[in-house]
Design a binder for these strands. Structure first.
Lengths: 199, 199
DNA sequence: GAAGAATTGGACCGGCAGGTCCACTTCTCC
DNA sequence: GGAGAAGTGGACCTGCCGGTCCAATTCTTC
């Protein structure tokens, strides 16, 4: 029901759509653009995505959601020391700074992720997963006494995600990572200094 | 060149467009919708906005930018005590929680504000203005010794805006103000506790 | 190697939405 | 009160883009 060749074509279509959307915004990308970029035509497109554009967009959303997490690995997965947090922070800033306007996270949340309930679910799942990983990192730091007990790991993780999200959104409008950096730094500073465990 | 009646019509058109866009997203709003809602037709529309949709969108962007600041007044203008900061925080959360998806800030930054360079300039100006007001509040708190000298007012204000922006963006995707609240609270907490002035 | 399924190419359709035009009405101001 | 500008209504045009159709080709499997 889906040969190797078919699967490859499908992948090519999703990738082409994702790239095109990142570069030019979902509103300016037509199915023909996707076809051109992926070296296919509309008939293939509708062959692999019978529901048409909406289904394709959903596939793109899933792809981009994966990418957001991947882009932070392996740092996001082992936030067990301040040095590790610092490296993660640098990865995030560097990545988004380089990507500038063409950024999976921004495009997903601000453009694709609101189109349909299904896409919203993808966004939500991404946020949950992300928050869980950050919470884990904070918990580990707390257990090893490097973060004080006044910090609620779950709320802190939520706040951190909001800060990044906001920084990225602003980056997309102003092309400056200033806000993102300020938010991340202030945040980490808070983790370090808030009600530290007595040494 | 623009009679009283004309000015009123123009305003009606912008308001109608703004409302319509907030409710249904810029992508789903047609000029006919705007016409219907404002009780006008396309001929008026192009009479007052000769460049068409793009010009109208720019006018909407400006309107919404004003609204974002207005919505936080008078609290934003006098952040001179912790109680005042608390009230401001409540106003922000309450407002965005009530507005949910239909929010001027979110729509401006994520939908309209990226369409064109002119609209980006509007966004940028809004952010500058907002940041300046917050910075002023932080400086005042610092001068009166309630915020420690370790806080850089400008960077802190930038971070705060990012946090709100992110909270709102997430609110628009998930319909939950949890992230916004967490970000704001953690933030204020940091201001309160970071390197407090010796009493 | 042939049947049947998966894949591909491209011509075609139809509606929608931005934009144009022009005739008509209502204001403003001398 | 009349000339000219500002404001209004709505029919019409046109290009674009999502979506359809079908015939041709290639793959899989026995």
């Amino acid at each position: 029901m889906l040969t190797k060749k078919g699967a490859a074509t499908r992948r090519r279509i999703v990738d082409a759509a994702a790239t095109e959307i990142r570069e030019r915004g979902v509103a300016n990308v037509t199915l023909e653009d996707v076809g051109r970029r992926s070296g296919t035509g509309k008939s293939q497109l509708f062959h692999y995505f019978p529901e048409g554009k909406e289904e394709l967009l959903l596939a793109v959303a899933r792809r981009e959601a994966e990418r957001v997490i991947e882009d932070q690995q392996p740092q996001l997965g082992s936030l067990t020391s301040w040095a590790a947090w610092g490296r993660w922070r640098d990865v995030v800033v560097e990545r988004y700074r380089r990507q500038g306007v063409h950024c999976p996270l921004g495009v997903l949340i601000t453009e694709i992720g609101r189109h349909t309930p299904a896409a919203q679910a993808v966004t939500r799942q991404l946020l949950d997963q992300w928050q869980a990983q950050l919470r884990l990192g904070i918990e580990q730091m707390r257990e090893s006494g490097r973060i004080g007990p006044a910090i609620d790991p779950d709320r802190a993780a939520a706040a951190l995600i909001a800060a990044i999200q906001g920084g990225v959104t602003i980056l997309m409008s102003t092309n400056s990572a200033e806000h993102l950096e300020a938010a991340l730094d202030l945040f980490l500073d808070h983790l370090r200094t808030a009600a530290p465990a007595p040494s």
